[in-house]
Computed example of a mutant assay.
Amino acid sequence: MPGARRRRYAMSMGFHREILALEDEDLERFVRDWIARKTSDYVEVQRFSGAGDLGRDIVGFLTDRRHEGPWHNYQCKQYGRTLATSSALLELGKILYHSDSGEFTPPTAYFFVAPRGMGRDLEKLVFNPSELRTALIDRWNAVCAKKIVTGQTIALEGSLLALVNAFDFGQVKRLTVDDILGDETAAPVLAKWFGADPGPAPRGIVPLDVDVREQLYLGQLIDAYGERAGSPFDDHVAVGDHPEFGEHLQDQRKRFFEADAFNRFYRDNTLEEDLEALHDDVYHGVSGHYRGNHGDTLGRIDAVMSQAAAVTPGGLLARHARVPVKQGFCHHFANDGKFVWKR
Rank of each mutant, 00 (worst) to 15 (best):
F265T: 00
G285S: 06
L271A: 09
L271Y: 10
R267C: 12
V282F: 06
L271W: 08
D268N: 12
D281F: 05
K254M: 14
E272R: 11
T270A: 02
R267T: 13
N269M: 06
A259M: 07
D281E: 12
G285I: 09
K254T: 14
H284M: 11
L278M: 03
Y266E: 03
E258W: 11
N263M: 15
N269K: 12
D274H: 12
E273A: 12
V282A: 06
K254V: 12
A261N: 01
L271F: 11
Y266G: 03
F262M: 06
L271K: 06
D274C: 09
G285K: 07
Y283V: 07
D260M: 13
D281V: 02
D281R: 02
D281H: 11
D268T: 07
N263Q: 14
T270L: 00
R264Y: 10
E258V: 03
E258S: 09
Y266N: 04
D260G: 10
F256N: 02
D268G: 09
L275W: 05
L275Y: 03
F257M: 13
D280W: 10
E276V: 08
Y266A: 01
Y283S: 06
D274P: 02
D280A: 09
L271R: 11
G285P: 10
A277R: 07
D260H: 15
R255C: 14
L275P: 00
V282H: 09
L278E: 08
V282M: 06
A261C: 04
V282C: 09
L275H: 07
E272Q: 11
E258H: 12
H284C: 02
F262A: 00
Y266W: 06
E272P: 00
D260S: 14
F265W: 08
R255I: 03
R264C: 01
R255F: 14
N263G: 10
L278C: 07
D281W: 12
L275Q: 08
A259Q: 03
E276A: 10
D260P: 09
D268P: 01
A259H: 04
A277S: 13
Y266C: 00
N269E: 06
F256D: 07
R264N: 04
F257D: 07
H279W: 15
R255M: 13
D260Y: 15
